[in-house]
Design a binder for these strands. Sequence first.
RNA 1: GGCGCGUUCGUCUAGAGGCCUAGGACACUGGGUUUUCAUCCCAGGAAUCGCGGGUUCGAAUCCCGCACGCGCUACCA
Length: 431
Amino acid sequence: MDQAGKKVVTRFAPSPTGLMHIGGVRTALYAYLVAKKNNGAFYLRIEDTDRTRFVPEATEDIIESMKWLGLNFEGPVVQSERKDMYSKYAKELVEKGAAYEKDGAIWFKMPQEGKVEFTDLIGNRHVTFDLSKEKDFVLLKSDGFPTYHLAHVVDDHLMETNPVIRADEWMPSVPKHTLTFQAFGWEVPQYAHLPLILGTDRSKLSKRHGARSVSEFRKDGFLPEAILNYMALLGWTPPGEVEIVSLEEMAKTFELNDVHSTPAVFDITKLEWMNGEYIRKMSDEELTKRLEGYLVDHPAKDKIAPLVPLVKERIKKLSDFIPLTDFIWEEPEYDMEVFNKIKVPNQKEVLEKIDVTLEGLPKPWKKEEFEATFRKLAEDLQIKVGDMFQLIRVAVSGQLVTPPLFESIEIMGEDKALQRVKSVAGKYPAF
RNA sequence: GGCGCGUUCGUCUAGAGGCCUAGGACACUGGGUUUUCAUCCCAGGAAUCGCGGGUUCGAAUCCCGCACGCGCUACCA
């Protein structure tokens, strides 16, 4: 309910000309938040009135993305399914004298004088348009489909949308819309025009920036709650000093009034940080579940649970899990370059000592004993403790960076670890 | 060109006349914890608030002008 006691209805109305774009998330999210905050309704509306740019998979991708993000909606309302309705309304305006037919299309007659004023909910901007600059425009195209202008007015009136939340690029069309609403004798809704989201070069976010679809972010291992949280911050600051805010919390505090009227640059580095924050905050059980859902084709998908606590603080995206743990299930490829990074002379000799020491270690290996043994070996061989463990790490994994060594060995199995050390020591330096 | 919107650290922002010698977050740099990496902790650099005029005892905050950026200017949305 708004102050006037009317139900608040918002909608996200993308046009299915491509996959759901990351920039659209913010528009959808704000519209969703306004509805939730006011106990209203939030709709998805598919604006597929341009047959020439229509992409069949797009609608499904938009719906799927919205669901994945957790932006639950009513609908979708699909404009192409209501095609006949629009022409009736267009003809109504012709009858009223507000529109006319020409070249098989129906045009709206714009007055040549006067002005249209409105106050945008974003930044409380009072904007005035001089009508002498306006031209007649098409309401109904010659193919019988409505233009955006007609479809917006008719649908948002019928759906009782208020406020209308959309991208800033629509602001110059406000006079067209206002006059069309008035020609029908309908109430003009309030508008909130959201500033653009820019790429790092400050131009409109597009593919050229690696700007991508929601589904691509999903494939990259981003979490929906992190995406939502980050996008919300592009133009809005939650009360207090916290930046990590759940959808539910946002829905309690969000105000269109607090949204910036300044375009914001999309910074993936901060999104990645935030994604990592969400991963770290998650329980091991939850992270395991997410990882299992993400790693659909991973061969060891069902065996990842014990690894989760080890990788939790080491991954920013779900996808980071793969390169970090591959060595556990797959035989690593060894590279002398990697060994060369460890500043230990006589590496072959040391590796052989490690092999022998490992064989002498009573099974099952115990963490304390494992550590103490190799600390002592490092001392005996007069090399740094850190280098000792690095050498074992590389022998076992082929990598300089892994989850904690002992725990990783425990998960892959003592025998496999031993066998790798033996093999490496034997073949060194040619693998 | 016309019309419209915008302008605080590299980025996201706090800021609604004195609390601002401009605060926080990300990123960056240095240090600590640590068998790697990461996490975590501490410290640091980083915006003369686009520029120029006003108004005021006092302006990032109000007004005007300019510059720059972006958007719209389709039978696309």
